[in-house]
Simulated scan of single mutants.
Amino acid sequence: MTRPQSSAAPDFLSRPWDERDPSPWLALYLDQSTPLPDEVKSAWLTDSSSASRQYLLPFLRPLARLFIILFQVCKVFVPRNWAHSGLLHQFLAWGLKRFVSPEANWLILRHFHLGSQVLTFIGRNSPAPVDTNPLEPADIDALKDHMFLKHDLNLFNFVIRLNKALREQGLALRKPEHIDFSMIREPGLKLEDMPQGRLNFLDLQSAIELFTPLYQLMLTDNDFWRAANSLQLDETIGIYAATLLAAPEHLVLVNNKHPLVPLSTLRAGHRLVIHGLSTEMLHSLLQRFQLAQAQGVAVDTTSGPTEA
């Protein structure tokens, strides 16, 4: 037996609006202060309002952080380079397919595509253009190819590659005369194609909290530390994009702590969720600028393009 298809309207949209008991999820869905497509916002809030997140996450989060501490102690007694990335990714794909909600799986797969497009946007519009290594998994099984580890490596290697090119040519990032948005597109992933078995109930945040200790256990300390601190590059990537767009006011959408101040890995699960949401919002913002450029109109980031 399978769950009802996720294409049905979420509960907060199908219930009548009661002014004496308004739904916070409906308020967040209708709010247009953050640039997210309705489809993405619906999936995000459906996942966030699930029973799993409400009742399971408060118990999982402290346990997950305790295991991170215990695994860190255990790894003192194993060889420094001990790691099983292949087995880790096999397990992650297995867990996602069997226990994680369709909305969460869809958002996770989207993240690789959107992140790759954002890096390509920056690399191609830089005054010293640099190549990127796009990650575009078509399904959950594609994640087995060390996809999570590659994603973290991509971020740091891109920052190094971009800034080496700028420094070597004595250039600084700036808005180009014509911005190339050709790489910005919808990934083509469908929510209804995600696994929808009876056990696919786990929300995004709970899944991330559960998987983070395994990530720490089965990678080297260096890989895990780098993965956790790659989240602090959100501000860096946001600054790059805002500079190219000449729109620094949009940095308010990115807030994952200062990149020069490494944080404890204990809160990596929560910060990973912020990372995913920041990527969605930045990609949506780029889509709005792309549409405005195509239509020759000014961009209004709260409601889309408007007449210039």
Rank of each mutant, 00 (worst) to 15 (best):
T2G: 01
Q5S: 15
S6A: 15
R15T: 12
W17S: 10
D18H: 10
D21P: 04
P22L: 05
S23A: 01
L30P: 00
Q32G: 09
P35R: 14
P37L: 11
T46N: 12
R53Q: 07
A64L: 08
L66Q: 12
I68Q: 15
F71W: 07
V73F: 14
K75F: 08
F77W: 13
P79G: 07
A83P: 00
A83S: 14
G86L: 14
G95M: 12
G95F: 13
K97V: 00
V100F: 04
E103W: 00
A104Q: 03
I108T: 09
I108E: 05
N125F: 08
P127N: 09
P129M: 10
V130A: 10
D139P: 02
L143A: 04
D145I: 09
F148N: 03
H151D: 02
L153N: 09
L153T: 03
L153M: 14
N154S: 14
N157G: 04
L166C: 06
R167P: 01
E168V: 05
E168T: 07
A172G: 04
L173P: 04
L173H: 02
R174H: 15
E177Y: 02
I179E: 04
I184K: 05
I184C: 08
L191E: 00
E192R: 13
R198W: 10
L199P: 00
F201H: 11
L202H: 05
L204I: 06
Q205T: 12
S206G: 09
A207H: 09
L210G: 01
D223L: 11
A228E: 01
N229E: 15
S230Q: 13
A242D: 02
A246V: 06
H250E: 10
V252Y: 13
L253A: 05
V254F: 05
N255T: 06
N256C: 05
K257P: 00
K257I: 05
S264C: 06
R267Q: 11
L272E: 01
I274P: 03
H275Q: 12
T279C: 10
E280G: 06
H283C: 05
Q287G: 11
R288A: 02
F289Q: 02
Q293H: 13
A294H: 11
A298G: 05
P305V: 06
P305N: 06
A308K: 14
A308I: 11
